[in-house]
Amino acid sequence: MRLRRIVQRLKNHFELFGLQPAYALELEQLERAYREIQTRIHPDRFARAGDAERRASMQWTTHVNEAYRILKSPVQRGKYLLSLQGVDVAFESNTAMAADFLVQQMQWREQLEEALERRDAAELERLRARLQGERRALEGRIAERIDGKADAAGAADLVRRLMFLEKFDADIDAGFETIESS
């Protein structure tokens, strides 16, 4: 694998974009660095180059796209940062959740079901707005724990919650689909 060299030198995806590893992130700065790198290595820049360079360009661009995807996503970024600290978020195996969080999730899901039965798009919008607020708050709490390096296990729990909320967001999307297609 030709990427080995520089990837070994770069400690993590953040360094690739010239950023400090932190959960709280200036998205604009990440985006700017991403575009800057892309303008130099994208396959379109090497359309007339030799095979070796075209291959290297494709591998690099693929790697940069993947790193960007991970850092952009609040869930993936959290999971990634925790893995750098040696903590596995374990989405699949660890599904234990605090009772109050689970109760809230169930209430929201019931509200979603009811809104779907009534074909109430406005209610979906309200649910989404509430979810959005909850997500922002959760992201703030994750930043405190990860960036303060205080409580990795607690952070992992919050990242799992955030993933639940992300799934719920996708379910709201599916709900809109159902209402719109009927």
Partner: peptide, 24 residues
């Protein structure tokens, strides 16, 4: 020539990323 320049190509790509970082 393609085989012989493979490593060079990789180094050039690295350099491109480094320059992007420096600019950043």
């Amino acid at each position: 020539l393609n085989r012989a320049t493979e490593d060079f190509a990789a180094r050039r790509m690295d350099a491109g990323v480094r320059r992007a970082l420096a600019g950043q």
